[in-house]
Design a protein around this nucleic acid. Structure first.
Ligand code: FES
Ligand code: FES
Lengths: 144, 144
DNA sequence: TTTATTTCGGATATTTTTATCCTATTTATA
DNA sequence: TATAAATAGGATAAAAATATCCGAAATAAA
């Protein structure tokens, strides 16, 4: 469904959110440990998230990744997925036709579009905040 | 969403279905042309579908791929997807946890499961027959 | 200003997916 | 039986995704 890079990106963002609520910055090393991902690869993904202004990176001593406590509620999964995997998951044809086109649909278009749109809606309406709070409450987990 | 192999497999199966309605066998060459896929790679996928008893392959002169006209309505997309991509799309965790587990859910579990189950339902309830008929009626297309 | 810390980013390596090539095997038919 | 036509399948290649390594640049603090 999502690429590994995207899975790591989502989990990393959630972990950064959790820590930002407590005013803590986190390093790629900590993040990789918490989400059970390869550290250097995770660092690359964090760079991409930073370039897309989804998370903030502070270089140098006492640096790390963080995000603005006030905007955590406004950051939706859709932004992260789009930044890493692009938007083919929202617009692409389920059977790989060059473009998904109502006027030249593939055989599964109508049915696929329903599922795809529901996924899109879900991602656009799920915020980092709710996911982070659920973890803090012990209702869900980032690894194992 | 699906692998290239799976996309090719679905389109190939639909094309074989269309031809089997007319009692015609088709070759990997014809199939690849009709679904706009690489021929040799498509042939590998056809072998996999044949090994899974989804399509039938007849070797030798006048051979080719076909399927039993009477069972086309019973073949669902889910079988093809499972044969080629496995069932991680039905059971796997959206964030890549080792297993999707109600008792140890990832942060998106509840929401993801809804989408995943809808996809599963769609694939399990869509037959090759309806897709093939739609194409014959000019309502959908296998390429471009 | 020096040092320690930390992200950035280019280069490289590994693995998986996608794709191609070639020969063996099977089968209908002349 | 000989031949041509067709799928099977192993070997290989190319491309993309995943992963690692290392030096450069930035920054806080001594
Ligand atoms: S054309 Fe294939 S999903 Fe729309
Ligand atoms: S645990 Fe992640 S989707 Fe179920």
């Amino acid at each position: 469904m999502f690429s590994k890079a995207c899975e790591y990106g989502i989990k990393a963002a959630i972990f950064i959110a959790i820590n930002s609520f407590e005013g803590k910055r986190v390093s790629p090393k900590e993040i990789a440990e918490e989400i059970n991902s390869p550290q250097a690869f995770t660092a690359k993904i964090l760079q991409a998230l930073a370039r897309n202004n989804i998370v903030y990176s502070i270089k140098g001593a006492h640096g790390g990744f963080e995000l603005d406590k006030k905007t955590i509620g406004a950051i939706k999964l859709a932004q992260i997925v789009k930044a890493i995997d692009g938007d083919s998951i929202y617009n692409g044809c389920g059977l790989g036709l060059q473009k998904c086109d109502e006027n030249h649909p593939c055989p599964v278009h109508d049915k696929f579009k329903l599922v795809r749109d529901e996924l899109k809606f879900m991602l656009e309406n799920t915020s980092l905040e709710e996911l982070a709070l659920d973890i803090k409450a012990g209702g869900s987990f980032l690894k194992t």
